[in-house]
């Protein structure tokens, strides 16, 4: 966590590896990256198909696992109906609410704890005590605490996202170069201006890392909570499908979780990059 390239330093590999007078690359090499990515997904489905087609039984058993085309049929049928969307929307609403609450609380507390010693002494110890408890272990307590199923699941989702966000924000603030603070004061910045102009943007790369990790964890927590105590949601749907022996629906549920999780992480990445135009591009991308 918090592994973010230091802002303001040029990437180590800044010179192009290919000399300017090199012959133009053939088409398939230039399109190599998207092609490789599509092939990688394709290969995944081919292997899945073969494992279920041959009913492979090598200690791990594939006899009960639905084949890709069965899952596809099921997905088409589900997407044509209404019920499945109700589950998706329920999950999305809980993620959005939980993640938004965790972002506001986590970033605010993280900034305070990172910057003010008093806040660190008073607010950080309980956070450190509660952090190692997995969110799933909160489910019984959450059901007792909150009046509705919806609010207790949102609570679990919030908890999951909160800890990585608050921790990364604290680290981001603590890693701010003291020289930048000195520079700001010698240019006339007061305490409030330093917080606004130096502390917040200085911690931003680390905050975005925290949001990215937090988004992943909050999906894990949401699905676990829905499986244990839900009446709606993709997690509930998946667990229910297992109970009524509709195995292809189980896989549709899993893939839906995968796709939604992937999209929400991508959203965080895009927004993060928009907010931080000063960060150098990844070294990997320049090669």
């Amino acid at each position: 966590m918090g592994a973010v390239p230091e802002a303001g330093t040029a990437p180590l590999v800044s010179t192009a590896v290919v000399p300017a007078d090199a012959p133009a690359l053939p088409q398939f090499v230039r399109w190599g990256r998207p092609v490789r990515r599509v092939l990688s997904i394709g290969l995944f489905f081919v292997i899945w198909h073969l494992l279920t087609k041959w009913d492979v039984d090598l200690y791990v058993r594939f006899q009960n696992i639905p084949a890709p085309w069965e899952v596809l049929e099921e997905a088409v049928a589900l997407l044509a109906g209404r019920a499945f969307y109700v589950h998706i929307l329920a999950s999305l609403e809980r993620i959005w609410l939980g993640f938004a609450i965790a972002t506001v609380l986590g970033v605010m507390l993280g900034l305070l704890i990172g910057w003010f010693r008093f806040a660190e002494d008073t607010l950080f110890p309980p956070i450190e005590l509660l952090r190692p408890i997995p969110a799933v272990a909160w489910v019984p307590l959450s059901i007792m605490l909150w009046p509705t199923e919806r609010s207790s699941i949102v609570f679990i989702t919030t908890l999951g996202a909160f800890f990585p966000i608050v921790l990364n924000t604290v680290h981001g603030v603590e890693a701010i170069d003291r020289q930048l603070v000195r520079a700001a004061t010698s240019l006339g910045a007061g305490r409030a201006a330093i917080f606004r102009e130096v502390v917040i943007p200085g911690a931003l790369p680390s905050i975005v890392t925290g949001l990215s990790v937090g988004m992943g964890v909050s999906w894990i927590c949401l699905i676990s909570a829905e499986m244990i105590s839900g009446q709606f949601g993709v997690g509930y749907f998946t667990w229910l499908a297992y109970g009524i022996v509709k195995y292809s629906q189980v896989v549709v549920g899993m893939l839906t979780i995968g796709i939604l999780g992937m999209l929400s992480s991508a959203l965080i990445r895009v927004i993060g990059a928009r907010c931080m135009p000063w960060l150098p591009r990844r070294v990997k991308d320049e090669a």
Binding site: A7, G8, Q179, R182, A183, S186, P201, L204
Partner: peptide, 18 residues
Amino acid sequence: PGADRGMVFQHHSLFPWK
């Protein structure tokens, strides 16, 4: 510290986000 006594540091003191 105050703006009437501005400091130029050895390096890396510009605000990278500005």
